[in-house]
């Protein structure tokens, strides 16, 4: 479990954030982090601050947009939403990822059979 916690690749985190926003609609930073932890069934325990590095990167690339809104506890919070360009990127990366993980899966299966 310790391994999976710290070894998240930068690109992987970006992909997860993008997918989360695609699936959930606009969320604030806490919401994104929380959601990723939930989906991973707490296998992924983020240092939640690192989520912001990913959010800035995605924003600078124009894949997500940010606007101020009010959170569930009635506080001012910044909400992030996926953009059209972001959806396109997500589709492309999803395909990439599936192809890649398929290859890895086959490789590992091959090693097993020996």
């Amino acid at each position: 479990m310790t391994e999976t916690k710290s070894e998240i690749l930068q690109g992987t985190l970006d992909l997860m954030v993008l997918k989360t926003l695609d699936a959930m609609g606009p969320l604030h930073g806490y919401g994104v982090a929380r959601r990723i932890e939930q989906v991973s069934e707490n296998l992924l325990r983020l240092n939640q601050g690192t989520i912001y590095a990913s959010l800035v990167r995605l924003q600078q690339k124009g894949w997500i947009s940010a606007s101020w809104g009010t959170s569930e506890n009635n506080r001012k919070a910044k909400f992030y939403a996926i953009t059209k360009a972001g959806r396109k990127q997500l589709a492309a990366e999803t395909e990439n990822w599936e192809r890649f993980s398929g290859v890895i899966g086959r490789m590992l299966a091959l090693a097993d059979r020996r």
Binding site: Y30, Y52, K61, S71, R75, K76
Partner: peptide
């Protein structure tokens, strides 16, 4: 696009810092 966004940000870094402060605060609160 990233470079353009960084250059734009140069002119409002103070506001960006302030907003991030707020964002962290509200995150911590949650």
């Amino acid at each position: 696009r990233v470079l353009a966004s960084r250059i734009r940000a140069l002119f409002s870094l103070r506001r960006i810092d302030r907003e991030f402060e707020q964002e962290l605060e509200s995150h911590e609160q949650l």
